[in-house]
Amino acid sequence: MALLHTVNKSPFESNTFNTCLGLAKQGSTILLIEDGVYAATTGHSVAEKIKNASGITFAVLGPDLQARGLESKLADDIKVIDYDGFVNMVVEHDSVQSWL
């Protein structure tokens, strides 16, 4: 079964992203939303963790990234989706875990 994880907190303020990464299995997807999108940019230690996490798909909610002025800082290999894409991801995965 493939799980969709959502993370909505900055990795620099909260340990939630790390907790999620530690419990995400291969084949699952981590979707960064709200303040979680700060993990999706380049030039910091979290970007390295994302690059090194094999077997996990990373995605970011584009509207949240745009709102925060960080579209140009987006790291490679992170898929940008909109709310329609968010809905599709929920449908395509077997269940959803929101790391609040």
Binding site: N8, I33, L61, D64, Y83, D84, F86
Partner: peptide, 25 residues
């Protein structure tokens, strides 16, 4: 789980709900 304005949760849920309805769910 959160009220309006203090957190984005309700806004995101609203956008998600609108998109889900538009997609025919």
């Amino acid at each position: 789980n959160e009220g309006p304005y203090q957190h984005q949760a309700s806004d995101t849920a609203y956008q998600f709900a609108k998109a889900a309805i538009a997609a025919g769910h």
